[in-house]
Design a protein around this nucleic acid. Structure first.
Length: 280
DNA sequence: CGTTACCTGAAA
DNA sequence: TTTCAGGTAACG
C-alpha cells in the first residue's frame, strides 16, 4: 500500500505522539505468524517490552523506531499494512478502540495509556527488532528527496540497465521509496514511456525524470499521500493525493494535457498507466 | 532479466 | 467465478 509519501506522512504524524514513550506491553496475533522476522513473536514481544522509543526515522518504505539501549524496531507495511495511534483515554475514561479489529495483527500499549495498532488485511507486512539496521535496509538505493540523489546519480542508475525504466524506478536497490503509483506519475511528468529501456534514455530525459520524481513526491507528501484503497495515516484518516493523480488508475480517461485516452499495460508484472501521446 | 508466491477481500 | 491490489523475496 504505502510508498514514500504515505510512510513519511505516518512517520511525521507519529513523531509527536510516540517519541519518549515506553512500550509497556506488546502483543502479536497468533493469526499473523509471519509478521515478525528472525525470531518468534513471543521473543520479539519480550524484547520490545520496557523499551523507550527515542527516534522515529524512515528509509525508503521502512519505518525505523530507534529504542533506548541500541535496538531498532523496523516496520514495513507492504501492501495493506497500517500503523494507527490511539491517544490515551480522556479524563472521562472514554476510549476509542481500533476501528477495524478484523485486521488487527499486533498491538503495542504505551506508558501514557495510548497504543499503537498494527493492522494488515493481507498479512504481508513485516517487522524486525535488530541491533544492526543495515541488515534490513542496507541495500536500499538513495532517498529520492535527499541530497545524494542528483541528476548525475539519476543517469548513473539508469545506465546499463536493460529493464524498462519503470522497473528501475521501482527497484528499491536503485532508488528507495518509489512504488507503482509514483513510478507512473513520475514518468508522466517526465513524458517518458514506462516500458522504454532505462539505458536508452537521453541525458535530457534522465534529467527530466530526476526533476519529475522530486516534484511528484513532494506534491504527494503535501497531500498526505494517496488513499486508493486501504491506506490511512496514523490517525486513521485518508490522504488526498488520489484526487490529484494524472495517470494512475485513469485507464480510458482523457489525458489532462492532450485529451488522449490513458492506456494501461503491464510492465514488470505491474499495472502501468500512461498517455500514449505525451509520453515517448 | 521476468515470473511466481506470499495473503485476503473487493470489484468486475 | 475470476481478476486485481500502494510490495518484495525467491525462483529459473
Amino acid at each position: 500500500m504505502p510508498e514514500l509519501p504515505e510512510v513519511e506522512t505516518i512517520r511525521r504524524d507519529l513523531t509527536s505522539r510516540i517519541i519518549g514513550r515506553t512500550v509497556v506491553e506488546a502483543w502479536v496475533s497468533p493469526d499473523a505468524p509471519r509478521l515478525v522476522q528472525d525470531e518468534t513473536p513471543e521473543s520479539f514481544c519480550r524484547r520490545l517490552a520496557g523499551r523507550t522509543i527515542e527516534e522515529l526515522d524512515r528509509r525508503g518504505k521502512y519505518l525505523l523506531l530507534r529504542l533506548a539501549g541500541g535496538l531498532t524496531w523496523i516496520v514495513h507495511l507492504r501492501m495493506t499494512g497500517g500503523l494507527i495511534h490511539l491517544p490515551p483515554p480522556k479524563a472521562d475514561g472514554a476510549r476509542n478502540g481500533c476501528r477495524d479489529e478484523r485486521f488487527l495483527r499486533a498491538r503495542f500499549r504505551l506508558d501514557d495509556g495510548g497504543e499503537l495498532c498494527y493492522v494488515d488485511l493481507r498479512k504481508l507486512g513485516t517487522m524486525w527488532l535488530v541491533e544492526d539496521e543495515s541488515s534490513v535496509v542496507g541495500k536500499l538505493g538513495p532517498e529520492p528527496l535527499g541530497e545524494a540523489f542528483d541528476p548525475q546519480e539519476m543517469r548513473r542508475l539508469l545506465a546499463k540497465r536493460a529493464a524498462p525504466v519503470k522497473s528501475v524506478l521501482m527497484d528499491q536497490r536503485a532508488i528507495a521509496g518509489i512504488g507503482n503509483i509514483y513510478a507512473d506519475e513520475s514518468l508522466f511528468e517526465a513524458r517518458i514511456r514506462p516500458a522504454k529501456a532505462a539505458r536508452r534514455l537521453s541525458r535530457v530525459a534522465a534529467e527530466r525524470l530526476h526533476w519529475a520524481i522530486r516534484k511528484v513526491l513532494v506534491e504527494a507528501l503535501g497531500n498526505r499521500g494517496s488513499s486508493f484503497r486501504d491506506y490511512v495515516d496514523a490517525e486513521g484518516e485518508q490522504g488526498m493525493h488520489q484526487l490529484r493523480v494524472k495517470v494512475f488508475r485513469r485507464t480510458g480517461e482523457p489525458c489532462y494535457v492532450c485529451g488522449t485516452a490513458i492506456r494501461r499495460i503491464k510492465v514488470g508484472g505491474r499495472s502501468t498507466h500512461y498517455c500514449p501521446r505525451c509520453q515517448r
